[in-house]
Amino acid sequence: MEDANKKYSFLETEEAENLFADLDIALKMGQHVQNFPHQTELFNFIEKFEDELRAYYRNLFKVNLAGKGSDYTRYFYLEIDDESRGIVKTRAKKLSPEHTLLGILLLKIHRIDKFFVNDIFVPDLIQLIKTNEEYKNYIYNLFAKRREKEATEIDENTIDDWVRNSLKEFERLGWINYDIRNREVFEIMPSIERLFTMYSYEIHNIDRLIDETNVMEERTGGLYAVEDETQD
């Protein structure tokens, strides 16, 4: 009993009284916590009791408290790892394809374009997506089954909704943070990198994936991947 108390002594601290409930709920809802003004207190609390907290979640909830990045880009989150898989399967949620697509797009903006150094104005982002020569046609095809030039108001609304709903989900996950004074402005958080770690295998092997897809298309005349006709 004494050992157990020592193990989770952070629970006895005054900080825990103020912060732990919030932190626990945030982490369990899948949020990523990083050293940004809106999460500084929670972040500092994790950093201070990192080992104890990790043991707490491992022993009592069978999940891993992961910490990635360094210094300014460090972030924490709960994950189901190989040890906990199977035991806590019901506590995982799949990131929807819609959210995945926008997430990878934000990751690209964050890592490569750096068009927006800090604040991103949501209408600007939507405009950028709708006018980008490289992928706008694919987006209109996915969300409107039409080309950009032929898009109706409903089509445009659908794309707007895709972006805004995904951003809401990312806010919940802590991958972005809205400006508290203006909900039309947000900032990409370092934890958006989590998406990269999730898809690192696919990204590293993208050339092979493209080749395989091309070969498959040649063989089948491009008929194999018509999801929408085969799925209900």
Binding site: G30, T100, F143, I154, Q231
Partner: peptide, 23 residues
């Protein structure tokens, strides 16, 4: 406003990834 109700599917060889959610 009106929007399309639409389901998107990733390519077959790209799996959807999981995030922890105890909600």
């Amino acid at each position: 406003r009106k929007v399309h109700e639409v389901d998107v599917f990733l390519p077959k060889n790209i799996a959807q990834k999981e995030v922890y959610s105890d909600r």
